[in-house]
Nucleic acid binder design. Structure first.
Lengths: 241, 241
DNA sequence: CTTCGTATTTTGATTGCTCAAAATCAGAAT
DNA sequence: ATTCTGATTTTGAGCAATCAAAATACGAAG
């Protein structure tokens, strides 16, 4: 059985991998992601390699094996189902479930996970719009466009938010931006690093480009209505101001 | 923060303590309960003592301090609320929740625990009838009588089952004996080590004395109806035979 | 009072994970 | 080609938890 530590390393390698060509993740970045000093990452990655979970090329980087990817997806499935459950069954807010799931993901049994999955009626994405891997280890692909690069003026909706920080999520919440929200990108000021969007009929919001890139969107095809995530949704707190 | 290991030691000391006069638990028994060799228990208990969680007297035994007891009750509260939640919210059977709770009890946050408690409507006992400690660290006392020592012929009900083994619990289930079930002890054959009871109108069951002692009972006062545990109850599987 | 048997403690090692700091390497810059 | 700089690896060490096996102490039996 993989220890929680091993599960975390594998998960972080998986999550960080797509940002690097050839899929080779430098160990410094892994160390950063896991929260250890670089030397520790080196040691651990060697042992991951011994365990057949990763390919390690000294001074170049690390990459998951098939077994490693399977494990990572299994951990991710647990994490995202737990987040969905906390929001859908226990009334948690999407901004507060990440840390909780971070702990629980290493101890829930397959049996419990199955019950949670059934309870939620087999959701395909978690409250942040992150796709939930199947038990078989397949996972839906990320929509390629986000608020920083999608076409202007077209009707889109929020498909996913790729940042787990509570502050950011609460900011989105305050502005009525949750997974499924309809919006249009009105304008981009690349000089000012700013993205203007319209939500609903008349609400305007301006985001910095870095934040805009974290909000993934998909076009609203007029033929089919917005693809709502299948898990239970509660009304969100409305902003005071 | 206490490690899961420390929480387990403290919990086991708490659970085993009442069986010993003076409350001093021999380290061999602790080792047995925790599942380590005796030497390991000695080492750990010393460090519990250093941490102010236990009093240790070499070659005599160990005993919790107030801080230790507080921690033990906190862990027990988590364990029992989790068991209640798995049964009451996710449809688990009372015979399969113990191991799951054993893992989860070390990682659920206070916030999650509070939500679970609220969801279940503040239960006072878990599915086995074990009392759930309050957040403040108080706990209801065990009813003193059980099937092996209660008066004959009087109307009683099952208040608590002090054995977590799946086999035993499934046996009780098969015979319709769950927390709250009404019954009478008809007869005891001390020579044969047997206890005969009647459940409901005409069902008769015979138990060995050791098993009978694990089923705690309380009298059915005619003035007030049976005190049902407050948590949600599902219909239990009825026996095939 | 001495001896014996058993419970307990001590000792020495191991495993998994971590850090600090020194050593090394690889690519960029001169 | 040489030097520099920054990333990476190595080395040495520590902590928490564990085991196996040797040493010790306590109470019971003689």
């Amino acid at each position: 059985m993989a220890t929680p530590t091993v599960e975390n390393y594998v998960k972080q390698i998986y999550l960080a991998a797509p940002d690097h060509v050839g899929g080779l993740l430098p160990l410094g970045e892994l160390a950063e992601a896991v929260g250890v000093v670089p030397g520790t990452a080196t040691t651990m990655v060697k042992s991951l390699a011994d365990a057949g979970l990763a390919h390690y090329q000294a001074r170049r980087g690390v990459q998951l094996t098939d077994a490693g990817r399977r494990l990572a997806l299994h951990v991710l499935r647990r994490h995202r189902l737990i987040e969905s459950f906390l929001v859908g069954a226990l009334g948690f807010d999407w901004s507060e479930v990440h840390d909780e799931a971070e702990e629980l993901e290493h101890v829930v049994s397959d049996k419990l996970l199955e019950r949670i999955d059934a309870f939620l009626n087999r959701p395909v994405v978690d409250p942040h719009g992150d796709p939930i891997p199947t038990p078989a280890g397949t996972i839906a692909q990320t929509p390629p466009s986000n608020l920083a690069n999608c076409p202007l003026g077209e009707s889109m909706h929020v498909a996913r938010v790729v940042d787990q920080s509570g502050d950011f999520l609460r900011f989105l919440d305050r502005n009525g931006l949750i997974v499924g929200t309809d919006l249009k990108v009105i304008n981009r000021e690349s000089a000012a690093d700013a993205v203007q969007i319209r939500v609903g009929r008349n609400k305007r919001i301006t985001l910095g480009a870095a934040s805009a890139a974290k909000v993934l969107v998909a076009p609203n095809t007029t033929s089919t209505p917005i693809a709502q995530p299948r898990h239970a949704r509660r009304p969100h707190k409305r902003p005071k101001a």
